[in-house]
């Protein structure tokens, strides 16, 4: 029941988001058809504005947009006039989602063990080394990591392609470049979570009962310690799935992240609103999934 209610609440939330996105991008100076080359005749400007209803008041345009949306029509991109917004999302989103999923897998696959391990070796040199590296990758941004990876793996050692998105070989460096930051984050969250969990009473009790250390850590402490990671992973996944402007740009990946940034620079009104809605819907949906996962992981959590 609770989750159905949340889903219903998501609808007005998305409406508000679309209205805000619509209003903000219309407020920005300039329009989608401003070009270096002026139209040859004022009639052209009039005709094109009429064609895309840009000559009407913004609220009216918004209502028309909503009407289209209700019919599943996200409209035509104003910059790429031969493509609809749906075309663009359908082309770019699967690529970004695959990149994001791989990066997510990488972040989890590296972050969780490192966090777990450093906590288990708390205060020893393994802990310091691991923590240092997880701190490092959190601090160094993607636009530094990615060129470094390309420089060594692609140009110096010629092991992997420098860019594009075609074969599995192309799909190794970008997820790493994208996922390293999150791997560091997760390692740190996991380590903190483990340290807290190991000091909690039920762990002490379990230890007093004579439970083996590894079993204790893996079975009992882990389950509690992973909760912060789970709540972080929802927004993180939304972030990863909608692509990254920087990584997609550096590796020449045909995802959606580049559009997310460029559409607002291009004043591509329909694309901006469409992508904002997509991002918002993913964020809401994944947060819902996270909350659901909580009920499975932590018996104390119950939603009414």
């Amino acid at each position: 029941m609770y989750f159905v209610k949340r889903l219903i609440f998501a609808v007005p939330l998305l409406l508000v988001i679309s209205a805000l996105a619509f209003a903000l991008v219309h407020l920005a100076p300039g329009g989608p058809f401003d070009r270096e080359r002026a139209p040859a005749s004022p009639e052209i400007e009039r005709a094109i504005k009429a064609k895309y209803h840009l000559d009407e008041p913004v609220w009216k345009q918004y209502l028309q947009y909503l009407n289209g949306l209700a019919h599943g029509d996200f409209g035509v991109s104003l910059k790429y006039r031969n493509h609809t917004v749906t075309d663009i999302i359908a082309q770019g989103l699967p690529v970004s989602m695959l990149l994001g999923t791989l990066a997510f897998g990488f972040a989890m696959g590296v972050g969780l063990p490192v966090g777990f391990f450093t906590a288990a070796r708390h205060g020893r040199w393994e802990d310091y080394t691991g923590s240092f590296f997880s701190m490092l990758v959190v601090c160094v941004p993607g636009f530094v990591i990615a060129p470094l990876l390309i420089l060594f793996f692609s140009i110096k050692w010629k092991l992997l392609p420098v860019g594009l998105w075609e074969t599995p070989w192309h799909m190794i460096l970008p997820p790493i470049a994208l996922g390293l930051f999150f791997a560091g984050k997760i390692a740190r969250l996991m380590r903190e979570g483990m340290l807290t969990a190991m000091q909690s009473e039920f762990v002490t009790a379990a230890r007093a009962k004579g439970l083996g250390e590894s079993r204790l850590l893996l079975k009992h402490a882990f389950r509690l310690a992973v909760l912060p990671v789970v709540s972080y992973s929802g927004p993180m996944l939304a972030d990863l799935l909608t692509g990254s402007f920087v990584i997609e740009n550096i590796f020449q990946i045909p995802g959606i992240g580049v559009f997310l940034v460029n559409s607002s620079l291009n004043r591509d009104y329909t694309l901006v609103v469409g992508l904002s809605l997509l991002y918002a819907a993913l964020l809401i949906g994944l947060n819902l999934v996270v909350d659901f996962a909580y009920t499975l992981l932590d018996p104390r959590v119950k939603y009414e």
Binding site: F33, R35, R37, P39, A40, S41, P42, E43, I44, E45, R46, A47, I48, K51
Partner: peptide, 23 residues
């Protein structure tokens, strides 16, 4: 004008080209 070509001006050398675009 409905096509809204950015380069329609190149065809204004035609007789009545501009008049047609201007409506």
């Amino acid at each position: 004008p409905v096509t809204a070509s950015e380069y329609s001006g190149s065809l204004f050398f035609l007789k009545n080209g501009q008049e047609f675009t201007d409506g």
